[in-house]
Write a protein that binds this DNA or RNA. Structure first.
Length: 917
RNA sequence: GGGCGGAUAGCUCAGCUGGUCAGAGCGCUGCCCUUACAAGGCAGAGGUCACAGGUUCGACCCCUGUUCCGCCUACCA
């Protein structure tokens, strides 16, 4: 074996072997109780970032753990077609090639996207493999696969037939860059400082009396069809029913009373109403029967036809025509000012809605769209979580989820793009012409809100109303999240009744980031309950965001991205995985720093070198003795190991990846390597010793067990080492996961070894403070009146002497200090105190020694005072549980005994230095 | 505006239903190339657990309030 672990040589080789041997593949008829996870499908446009790395590491830990436990384990991988994002990418590419999607036409464009997907859409899958993900690649799915598309059509049709999907003209969020509708949650709100404009609207019958309104969007004034005041506002309510002259136009608009829209405290207390361009105004418009004047077009420019309809002053119409909203605003404000309408402008904090894909400011836009009537779907989804049929972990998310679900709005699912699942609705051209709901243009057509759709699984051959054969399909596609909402059952073959569906649905655990709780998780729950009649998963483990070391969100523009691929190259995949697991504390963002990864790289190397040591001592007879007959040190490590096994399993059950990782780290490094390997060296060095053979056995057995325990976290290095060790089976990844054996856990042996280590540590402490090299052999003597302690130490006399570097060790009830000795008290974990003297003739620095003892005395004095205070308090003695009282008393006695011993020692030192000086 | 979370060692974080000197990793200091490992070993320094009250025999933990920092959510134009 090499002196240092080199991940590069190992990772690819083992991954390939695992795949070739089919270990990742799951069968619906396989043995063991099913355990299934569906992977949150990354976008095909994506490349692996730390969020993916975390997400998939955690899933792989769960999957490998369950697989080793003998469960029938399925991890379904896949990718998402990411409608808007992918279309953007391909359009950009077309632009570089000097063409556009409109020039290509729909069919050829979609073909282009598929070509692009074939070429670059698989990158992230390869990257997931590098991470060690043990997914069933035979079941790789894509949201646009034929099977999944069939599921989408099925769901759409059934929801439509159930009256849960409808088409209608609503105000929706529109991205003027992506040129499509967005759902409410696809809009990100960003705080911004805007301006609040106070504008005078003169009364129609008394031009000298203005009604002043306040608005953040003065350009929309041209589309106002009313002004609202509060009906109980004495300042204004006499105006209700009158009309005002809309500035910059030739229109008169009514003043209405509206207590919902108007907040008397805000602004001027009067609100302009623009039903076509504001969500609240839209509602208000409905309440008061106000017309809707749309004057902003799809690209967020002022529409000439709209300006004309709005009877905007001719001169202004010309200047505004086709101007982007932002420019138009300046022109309108300018015109208002010149006309004397502008009363006041003030700074105003506000939230700007932006497209979550491209960050363009979204426009409320009036258009016919498809919606899911969500309330009836939400109700069962609320119940499933309330009743804990579905558990959210950490549980804090439950409130968030429930609050959002209870206040859910209808879901706009149509997108005006080409890449995606085209809506399975058709329209009769003949009927459309007759009713004027289908407006034909040279190369396209427009459907009004009243157009009558024929929703079907397959293209209908003729119109059921008029019998004509000329039908056109709805050009819109579905929101990408509509198809991912079906993921847990569509990937298993639904709507067909497959064995996979029967075995693996509901899936066991969903691992995901909180950022898509509403986008994805909530919708999967609704759809799963609706179409499968059962929740899609039992547990939802919600992990945090990965940030940089300063807590900033990683982003390309900030340049603070830590690329997982680079990290894997530099430190190895196992180190990255372990880091992410160890830092996955529930409910806290992960602040990733390279130093931390380096630390776990070192951990991997530590493990590697422990393996080298063990393999070095593999030769020689091994005694497969019953545990009871093995040396105490062996029984000790087995006891500790089985405690560790219990803890790791419990932590994993509780989704405490951080706890499990830290337990493993702590045990492997600081118990197994630091102590066990050291304790075992004397026995191994003496090949003839009776202990050598059983110790070799224990060493190898325990380490092999430890590797299996660690495997889900660090799959590569554990496999590499395991294969070099005596083992049963062909791969560690299908070897059984360790389970704790309570019979091996032994408190008294743990206490016994703890007393050995406490003496060794005491000697080392003296060495450290006196600066004595560990190579220098010393003489030492331990005195203790505690019989058990004394006997234990005597039993392990040679062991202590050997690993503490003591050539002459005396142990007795009472011993004589050396003339020049340093000393330390030793507390026996089972109760009792001793003192150890180390002969430092010619080496001792008495001052340092005094300082050390004085410091310890001070600590003890504080402790004694504290326990004394408690014990002298009658309330404490009366009320406290007996075991706590006992412990406190014992602690008190221990400290007093130790204090006494050290005080004597200090006195002796003072006399000594006094005598010398 | 509402909701959630956080504030513990220089940094990043654990600390389970209140009860033995408050823990870890990294960093820092000193000594050590001891035959698995210098990507290492041994030892050590470092904390009025944000602040103020309260409950309790006892509070990092429970309650109230305050300050600061995140995030989600919301139509105050």
């Amino acid at each position: 074996m090499e002196k240092a672990y080199d991940p590069k040589q190992v990772e690819q080789r083992w991954y390939q072997t695992w795949v070739e041997r089919g270990y990742f593949h799951a069968s619906a008829t396989g043995p063991g109780s099913p355990y299934a996870i569906v992977m949150p499908p990354p976008n095909i446009t994506g490349s692996l970032h730390m969020g993916h790395a975390l997400n998939n590491t955690l899933q792989d830990i769960l999957i490998r753990w369950r697989r080793m436990q003998g469960r029938n384990t399925l991890w379904v991988p896949g990718t998402d077609h990411a409608g808007i994002a992918t279309q953007n990418v391909v359009e950009k590419q077309l632009l570089a090639e000097g063409t556009t999607r409109d020039k290509l036409g729909r069919d050829r464009f979609i073909q282009k996207v598929w070509e692009w997907k074939a070429q670059s859409g698989g990158a992230i899958i390869e990257q997931l493999k590098r991470l060690g993900s043990s997914c069933d690649w035979d079941r790789l799915r894509f949201t646009m696969d034929e099977g999944l598309s069939k599921a989408v059509r099925e769901v759409f049709v059934r929801l439509y037939e159930d009256g849960l999907i409808y088409r209608g003209e609503r105000l929706i969020n529109w991205c003027p860059r992506c040129l499509t509708a967005l759902s409410d949650i696809e809009v990100e709100h960003e705080d911004a400082t805007g301006k609040l404009y106070h504008i005078r609207y003169p009364l129609a019958d008394d031009r000298s009396t203005p009604l002043t309104v306040a608005t953040t969007r003065p350009e929309t004034l041209l589309g106002d069809t009313g002004v609202a005041v509060h009906p109980e506002d004495p300042r204004y309510n006499r105006f209700i029913g009158k009309r005002v002259k809309l500035p910059l136009t030739r229109r008169l608009i009514p003043v209405v009373g509206d207590s919902i829209l108007v907040d008397r405290e805000f602004g001027t207390g009067a609100v302009k109403i623009t039903p076509a361009h504001d969500f609240n105004d839209f509602e208000a418009g409905l309440r008061h029967n106000l017309p809707r004047l749309a004057l902003i077009d799809q690209q967020a420019r002022l529409d000439p036809a709209g300006l004309r309809d709005a009877q905007v002053d001719d001169a202004l119409q010309e200047r505004l025509a086709s101007k982007p909203v932002r420019e138009a605003r300046a022109l309108v404000v300018d015109a208002l000012e010149k006309g004397g309408f502008l009363a006041k402008v003030e700074d105003h904090p506000m939230a700007l809605g932006k497209c979550y894909r491209c960050k363009t400011v979204v426009e409320p836009y009036l258009s016919p769209q498809w919606f899911v009537k969500i309330q009836p779907l939400a109700e069962p989804a609320i119940k499933a979580v309330e009743s804990a049929q579905i558990r959210l972990i950490p549980a804090q998310w439950t409130n968030n989820y429930l609050a959002w679900m209870r206040d859910i709005k209808d879901w706009c699912i149509s997108r005006q793009i080409w890449w995606g699942h085209q809506i399975p609705a058709w329209y009769c051209v003949n009927c459309g012409r007759d009713t004027g709901t289908l407006l034909e243009a040279p190369k396209s057509f427009t459907l009004t809100a009243e157009a009558k759709p024929l929703v079907a699984r397959h293209a209908p051959s003729h119109c059921p109303d008029c019998g004509h054969h000329q039908l056109v399909r709805d050009p819109d596609v579905l929101d990408t999240w509509f198809s991912s909402a079906l993921w847990p059952f569509s990937t298993l073959g639904w709507p067909d009744e497959t064995p996979e569906l029967k075995t693996f649905y509901p899936t066991s655990t969903l691992v995901t980031g909180f950022d898509i709780l509403f986008f994805w998780v909530a919708r999967m729950i609704m759809m799963g309950l609706k179409f499968m009649g059962q929740e899609p998963f039992r547990d939802v483990y919600i992990h945090a965001l990965v940030r940089d070391a300063e807590g900033q969100k990683m982003s390309k523009s900030k340049g603070n991205v830590i690329d997982p691929l680079e990290v894997m190259d530099k430190y190895g995949t196992d180190a990255l995985r372990f880091t992410l697991a160890a830092m996955a504390s529930p409910g806290r963002d992960i602040k990733l720093s390279e130093e931390r990864i380096e630390g776990y790289r070192n951990f991997a190397n530590k493990l590697w070198n422990a393996a080298r040591f063990i393999l070095m001592h593999r030769e020689g007879p091994r005694a497969d003795a019953p545990v009871a007959e093995r040396p105490v040190t062996d029984r000790w490590i087995l006891s500790r190991l089985h405690r560790c096994i219990g803890e790791v399993n419990a932590s994993l059950e509780a989704y405490r990846f951080d706890e499990a990782a830290n337990t493993l780290y702590q045990f492997i490094w600081h118990e197994y390597c630091d102590w066990y390997v050291e304790l075992v060296k004397p026995a191994l060095a003496d090949k003839a010793s009776r202990q050598a053979a059983p110790t070799r056995t224990t060493l190898i057995e325990s380490f092999e067990t430890l590797l299996r325990l660690l495997h889900p976290f660090m799959p590569f290095i554990t496999e590499e080492i395991w294969q070099a060790l005596p083992h049963k089976g062909e791969s560690i990844m299908i070897a059984p996961y360790p389970t704790p054996n309570p019979a091996l856990i032994n408190d008294s042996i743990e206490t016994e070894i703890a007393s050995v280590t406490s003496v060794v540590s005491a000697v080392r402490n003296i060495r450290g403070s006196q600066g004595i090299p560990s190579s220098r052999q010393l003489h030492a003597a331990v005195a203790t009146p505690a019989e058990t302690f004394k006997n234990t130490l005597k039993t392990h006399h040679n062991l202590i002497a050997s690993i503490a570097g003591i050539s002459d060790l005396a142990i007795d009830t009472d011993v004589k200090p050396y003339p020049h000795s340093a000393s330390s008290s030793v507390v026996f974990p089972g109760g009792g105190v001793g003192i150890i003297y180390v002969d430092l003739a010619g080496l001792i620095d008495v001052e340092k020694e005094k300082t050390r003892i004085e410091k310890r005395l001070k600590e003890l004095a504080a402790q004694i005072e504290q326990t004394e205070k408690k014990l002298s308090n009658p309330h404490f003695v009366a009320k406290v549980p007996p075991d706590v009282l006992k412990k406190t008393k014992a602690r008190h006695e221990e400290c007093r005994a130790e204090h006494e011993k050290l005080t004597g020692e200090l006195r002796r030192l003072r006399a000594m230095s006094g005598g010398a000086g």
